[in-house]
Amino acid sequence: MKMRGRIWKFGDNIDTDAIIPARYLNIWDPQGLAAHCMEDADPEFMKKMRPGDILVGGENFGCGSSREHAPIAIKAAGIACVVAKSFARIFYRNSFDMGLPIFESPELWGLVENGAEIEVDADAGLIRIVGAAANPLKIPPFPPFMQELIADGGLMNHIAKGRTK
């Protein structure tokens, strides 16, 4: 899996209320949620972003509520993947469960500005900053079980394959 896209940079502790405010939780259709993606972090975000763009977060991305509406909104908006210094745990498991690619990189945030282009090579475990001379950044590999979830296309498919027994 390789993704190349323009990045949108956010700070530490981006909570799920910022990703998808609770006032929209009376919606569960993915496209309906996507219309409000990142609204309370950047009200103009959906006007500015293009499908294939990448979110870059600081520490504890996705903290707060367990709402799976958050990764659903990000994925349905067309965001290719999220790269953060660290993820809050429910957001982390939700992303694997429902198939939003996420990657941990403690270094990337400090090396890129908004609008930079990056290439994420999930198979090689590398992130390249397009046009930068620096060596590619290593993505710490995910545990084998998380890789199985990704390969199976999420938790429900994984269960359907009878692999949890």
Binding site: R67, E68, P71, I90, L155, I159, T164
Partner: peptide, 14 residues
């Protein structure tokens, strides 16, 4: 512990 909706679906099923 808190989990997401897909986790709840899996727990309801299995």
């Amino acid at each position: 512990t808190g989990v997401g909706s897909t986790d709840l679906a899996a727990a309801m099923m299995t």
